Simulated assay, not measured.
Amino acid sequence: MKEIRIYPKLELLNTWAIDRTRFSPDATKPPLCLRCGQPLAPVLAQNALSRHADVYICDACGTDEALCDAIGFPKRFILWDAVENQRLKAPADDDAWLLKPLCSFDQIYLDATEDQMGRKSPRTELAYSRSDYDGRKWWTTWFTVYEELKTPERVAEIDQFMDALFALPEMASLNTMRRMCRIYAEPTADPTECNLYCDTERFHVWLRLITRKRDYNLYVHFYVKESEEK
């Protein structure tokens, strides 16, 4: 089964694995802190282990991370220096689908039409799911937007995507999803809602994540790529 990964989780671990080799046991030229971009202390133990990834960050970032966690606003990975300045080393031979906090397909919303339910939707939206977590498991309901976009290959890819999504440890419960949202996802004006996006072979995918209890907690929208329409 094809996997889903959350960006930049593995990229940070892979980059730190390379940076870690410069401590033997101390570093004559320390690598840069992945969080702020300043040099790490030459003695590894003088740095701090991040609360959100199995990587070392500088001592100042360790203190700031603790303070941010205490007030409930951790620094999202997308704002880490190594991510912003593209210092990450991607793993080789990785073909997983990546969930990212940045939308690369916002132009599709400019071409919206009214579906059968009277809801404005991009004309490329095949279907969307609505899920809620009842304290023990996820329950999902499906809605078809434009029936004419259905093909067996597209339906199979949607099923594969959803299986891979709920296989993520971050989706094990509402609490784990909430932690994922705080550090990986795109924030919105509502602090209980956030977004993630993904590009698969056939679809642009938008995940709307809602961390409130006793509410629908996840909407996943599937938009057919233009290359697939032809």
Rank of each mutant, 00 (worst) to 15 (best):
A92N: 00
Y109C: 12
L98W: 08
W97V: 15
T113H: 04
L34G: 12
P25C: 02
A60D: 14
D19G: 00
A45R: 02
A41E: 15
F143H: 13
E65V: 02
P74E: 06
V55E: 15
A41V: 01
R76Q: 10
A127N: 04
I57Y: 15
A96H: 07
A70N: 08
T21Y: 02
C36K: 14
P42D: 15
C36A: 11
Y56R: 10
Y133P: 08
G37I: 05
S129W: 11
S129G: 05
D94G: 00
C103G: 03
L99Y: 09
H52W: 13
A112E: 14
C58T: 06
Y56T: 07
V145A: 07
Q86V: 02
S129F: 15
W138D: 05
G135L: 06
Y128F: 15
L67M: 10
D93M: 01
D94I: 00
F77C: 07
R136V: 00
C61V: 06
V43D: 12
D54H: 11
L34Q: 15
T28M: 03
Q107L: 11
D106T: 07
Y109E: 14
Y109K: 03
W139Q: 11
E114W: 05
A70I: 08
E114D: 06
F77P: 05
W139P: 01
D59K: 09
L99S: 06
R22A: 12
C61A: 11
Q46T: 03
I78S: 13
T124Q: 14
Y146W: 14
R119E: 11
G62F: 08
G37A: 07
R87V: 01
L98Q: 09
P31F: 08
